[in-house]
Design a protein around this nucleic acid. Structure first.
Lengths: 191, 191
DNA sequence: CGCAGTCTATCTATCGATAGGCAGATGAGG
DNA sequence: CCTCATCTGCCTATCGATAGATAGACTGCG
């Protein structure tokens, strides 16, 4: 039986913290509860992440990095923009399907004023990463389009999907998400 | 000098509470801070609103009622759907412009799991009210359209605008809201 | 030994909520 | 008009719970 390494422990803490934040938000994340979940004491969590800001900034950073990797892979898998955007919408859907959770950075955006600066920065980076990827996908579909227009549309798609997630979650009804995404497609917001 | 009536005090508490929730969310609303803002003690706030759930449910109910009144008036002022939707988008914009605040029920949706049931109910009613109004406006623009399609599009517009607000707030950049709404229009999500 | 990692124990701050008291307004019976 | 009970609105004081954070002891491994 292999003992847990420091890295394992960090991972375990981050995984549990991520789930809690996605379900309840930044403010509801408690070191004590978190420690209980991973089977250690809160002082030990502070050993790995000195402050709540450190933990959540690391959380958001990893969230962005993992998301970026996933999206990059999507982009490499198929040249079809519609297919890529379908997978993209599915990623956000899966958070809802998984215990009515939300996008980590989406829920943190709502709590913006309570976030330490280092976390705020990461939240913004997540948005930038998404918009960047969406812009790339859109430019495949309409290579002739104006750069700024593409960026604005990318931002609009990102915002619209975050909103669909937020509203569907608020109504605790995932079918709202599905119907909303379908409407986005139908109107042409999402190609 | 007229003394404050009970109703005045309730109003003052609710006004301050609304501002705090729109800026910081449900969890960040504290009876002590709230009391300090209106110049009384927290026990007195409990006198007017026995629990935090009571206060926030009242808050959301009034928010929905006032919104409903405003929207009804809009609908009566002009038969032009585009004009109505412009005003609608402006309402959500003004929250952002006012100290980077959010829709009361939008921000509460993000904290759904921490809300008492009575508050949750009100949050859902707010969404229903908005979707109902948007459906009416859309049916003016395209009276021949299918009822369910209109409803879905209405939901999509509501979600998209909430999302635009959320993302613009997260990036602390109101121009993101403006560009996103413009993209919604351009693609035809918003007529 | 010495360090890494976890622990116990504790601090300060704040939370929502409650108990109980106090001043001023109200209103009815004499 | 006067008095006295009642009500209103707010107060002080305090409760138990929980928050993030820290100090210092313990434990096991290299």
């Amino acid at each position: 039986m292999m003992a847990k390494t420091k890295t394992d422990m960090r991972e375990a803490v981050m995984t549990a913290a991520k789930a809690t934040v996605q379900a309840h938000g930044y403010n509801a994340l408690s070191f004590r509860e978190l420690a209980k979940e991973v089977g250690i004491k809160s002082a030990s969590v502070h050993y790995h992440f000195p402050t709540k800001g450190d933990l959540c900034a690391a959380l958001a950073r990893r969230y962005t990095d993992e998301g970026s990797a996933t999206l990059t892979e999507l982009l490499a898998t198929s040249p079809d923009a519609t297919w890529c955007l379908d997978r993209y919408a599915e990623i956000f859907r899966s958070a809802l399907a998984n215990d009515n959770r939300m996008c980590l950075c989406g829920i943190m955006s709502a709590e913006l004023d309570d976030l330490p600066n280092e976390v705020r920065t990461e939240v913004e980076k997540f948005a930038e990463m998404n918009v960047g990827w969406l812009t790339k996908v859109l430019s495949r579909a309409t290579p002739a389009a104006d750069g700024q227009d593409l960026k604005d549309q990318a931002m609009a798609i990102f915002a619209a999907i975050e909103g669909a997630q937020l509203v569907a979650r608020g109504c605790q009804d995932i079918s709202i998400y599905d119907r909303t995404i379908r409407a986005y497609r139908k109107t042409g917001l999402i190609p």
